[in-house]
Design a protein around this nucleic acid. Structure first.
Lengths: 209, 209
DNA sequence: CCCATAACGGGACTCCAGTTTCGTTAATCA
DNA sequence: TGATTAACGAAACTGGAGTCCCGTTATGGG
């Protein structure tokens, strides 16, 4: 008797198994975008994916852990950042990217649903954190370049500046009914740039506000 | 035959009906804070509230609409703002308040759950928006005073400044695993103050960043 | 204080999300 | 290429979330 331990999908990850995963994740994304996180059952996802529902239950078990896997998949498709000559323009490019994503009906609903799922289970939350860690890491260098150019004080927490760009956009998406337009994106970028220049994001404590 | 239209709880809102509502909302808050939004059923809430589950289903029907009512209740308990002499101190007071709320295990979990619920139904989302509208309205005057004192340019969107204080705290709560400490609160306040002074939140468009 | 009935509550019922079973298909290795 | 068995999928099954029925409680108006 061998150990029956290994989770399904790990021993023979090629061929059919991979196709099933891709198909189910796509279906999960569609379903989340359409129905939201609450009105979601795995049988519906199985139907959309043209896959037996037993398979979905066996490999993922719950909606939240399926979302965790979806986030793993989303994290791999990272978008390359632009590179202009100034901090503000780089941050604006980043802000516009986030804004366009969240303003898009499908993507916006998907992100809402994914965030909702992450509030419900630690494993999913961790996957979400990793997703944003990757996104932040992708864009952080543009702040480092601004430091090198002398636009921003040395010792600035570059990752925090990137997060500061996204924060108001996500906050608006979740807590207000207002539309996310380009003005909101530009404002987010300008606020982050102004604060960064003022030394608000200096590591390890007090800045002269 | 009278119209059977009026929802239960609206015709005789006093006495028992009010007690049941208070008890159920308290139980709902506890359950949301403990289990999160996903692992929640109304029968459990009814048990905690020592109320028949039929009553809960009849008056609220779904978890999301119960959360909507909970938000209505939460909106009524508004906290009074402080009033120091400077914008930065007022914003810091606000940021600390938000930070303490979100860092508290029970309250933090509750807010996460409520936000998750709001992503799932329009009615709940609207209740959440109203909740934050009230909170913002409560604090916006301190930015107006800063304008009057000449700390911040006239024409600044005062509500947007208040939202800018909360945004990074909520963003951190939802998308990172990092603890929400006082440093994060102060940083959020300083960033909002710096951006406001730089004219980022001037109404109707382009600022000189 | 009393009546009409709004609102509550226990318990039976229904229906479907999630599980179990077992036969079928196809990925990996020799 | 064939053997081994991981992984899939159809169908039957089950438990509990949500509904319905109807008797009981107590609110609000006269």
């Amino acid at each position: 008797m061998g150990f029956e331990g290994a989770d399904p999908g790990t021993v023979r990850p090629g061929g059919r198994t991979a196709r099933v995963r891709a198909s189910v994740l796509r279906a999960a994304g569609d379903a989340l975008a359409e129905h939201g996180f609450a009105r979601l059952d795995l049988a519906d996802i199985a139907r959309r994916a043209e896959v037996g529902k037993t398979t979905v239950y066996r490999r993922w078990g719950t909606v939240t852990s399926l979302v965790a896997d979806l986030l793993l998949d989303m994290a791999e498709q990272s978008l390359p950042r632009t590179e202009t000559g100034s901090l503000l323009d780089d941050l604006k490019a980043n802000a516009r990217l986030v804004q366009r994503t969240l303003a898009d009906p499908r993507q916006g609903a998907l992100f809402k649903a994914v965030i909702a799922a992450a509030t419900c289970e630690a494993k999913t939350a961790e996957a979400l954190h990793r997703f944003y860690d990757i996104r932040v890491t992708e864009w952080a260098p543009c702040v480092q370049q601004a430091i090198d150019r002398g636009e921003v004080p040395a010792g600035t927490d570059v990752r925090e500046v990137i997060r500061a760009v996204s924060a108001p956009l996500y906050y608006r998406l979740l807590t207000s009914g207002d539309r996310l337009d380009e003005a909101a994106a530009d404002q987010a970028a300008e606020a982050a740039a102004a604060a960064a220049r003022a030394g608000v994001y200096l590591r390890g404590g007090e800045s002269r506000a």
